[in-house]
Computed example of a mutant assay.
Amino acid sequence: MGMEDFDLRELRYFLAVSDELNFSRAAERLGISQPPLSRAVRRMERRLGGPLFLRERNALRLTAAGSTLRDEALKVLEVASAAAHRTRRAAEGAERLTVTAAPGLGIQLLRRIIETYAALPDACEADIAVSGCGSQDDAVRSGRADLAVLSTPYADAGLEIRPLWSEERVAALPAGHRLARRGLLRCRDLAGEAFPVWPGVSGQARRYWTGLDTAADVDGGGRPGPSVYDMSQLIEVIALGQAVALLPRHMAERNPRVDVAYVPVADADPFSAVLAWPQGPAEPAVELFVETAADLFEAPQTADARPSA
């Protein structure tokens, strides 16, 4: 029994129920009545030979089979969405690329690549889409963008990756902090400190930004500090003594403050930026863009070779 045994409508029905864990709410979300939704899920279960949900009193829970189907269905719908996006763009006629990155270093790297790419005789139009932090990989997988600059931590499933940039991370500390005058720190030195909370980030991202991704000997890691939504707010809570943070060196250099000290952290995973595009055969325009980036960044560049703002 394979995914070809389900149509996209059934998969969307199933995902709505798996999100809501309630048939009534899922039906309302889908804009249909509950009976056809329940029948569709039961048909899927009959074809699979087992239940997708445990139906408990006034509650639903995904079975092991249901969890597996949810993971696979998300992939199928992602691929279908990407195919639709790319087909519509092909139907529009003139070939053009959409490339995306978050504000800051990612956009600078893209501009540098495009300046060289645009001068090539076989280049097509390339549009830069400025996107929010952490959304670039989804933009490529869904077909909203052809290529993206991703920064650590990122999910590379289904993507081809070309390294562009790498640099160390530093601890950002209030100037009066007990560690501020040290010449070098380790992640364990920051154990128990308050770290800013970025609402909505993944567990992987939280571990990276608090140094727990490589510091296995740090018991418990940092404690939650104030919620922050942008870099200026982050620097202010550090200056006020409300938190500490691990930052890429280029962000520290762009935010010099007399009330904030920046100290290198020897064992923190480096910050890196990569160019990403979908796995599989690439369109000629994408191949040329990647080749251009490869020529410009033969080895991942570091802060010593930073592009100008």
Rank of each mutant, 00 (worst) to 15 (best):
L37M: 10
L37W: 09
L37T: 06
L37C: 08
S38M: 10
S38Q: 15
R39M: 08
A40K: 07
A40D: 03
A40S: 15
V41T: 07
V41R: 01
V41P: 00
V41L: 13
V41A: 02
R42S: 09
R42W: 06
R42A: 10
R42N: 08
R42T: 07
R43L: 07
R43A: 07
M44L: 04
M44F: 01
M44C: 01
M44N: 02
E45G: 01
E45F: 02
E45S: 03
E45R: 05
E45H: 01
R46A: 07
R46Y: 05
R46V: 05
R47S: 11
R47G: 12
L48H: 02
G50H: 02
G50Y: 05
G50S: 03
P51S: 06
P51G: 03
L52C: 00
F53M: 03
L54W: 14
L54F: 14
L54I: 15
E56C: 11
R57G: 13
N58L: 12
N58S: 14
N58R: 15
A59I: 09
A59Q: 15
L60H: 03
L60R: 07
L60F: 04
R61L: 11
R61I: 08
R61V: 08
L62S: 06
L62Q: 10
L62T: 05
T63W: 05
T63Q: 04
A65D: 10
G66A: 00
G66R: 02
T68K: 11
L69R: 00
R70Y: 06
R70D: 05
R70F: 01
R70N: 01
R70T: 03
D71W: 07
D71S: 13
D71L: 12
E72P: 05
E72W: 07
E72A: 12
E72V: 11
E72H: 09
E72R: 13
A73W: 00
A73N: 04
K75D: 14
L77Y: 02
L77V: 02
L77R: 04
E78D: 10
E78N: 10
E78C: 09
V79A: 13
V79S: 12
A80I: 01
A80N: 02
S81R: 15
S81Y: 11
S81W: 10
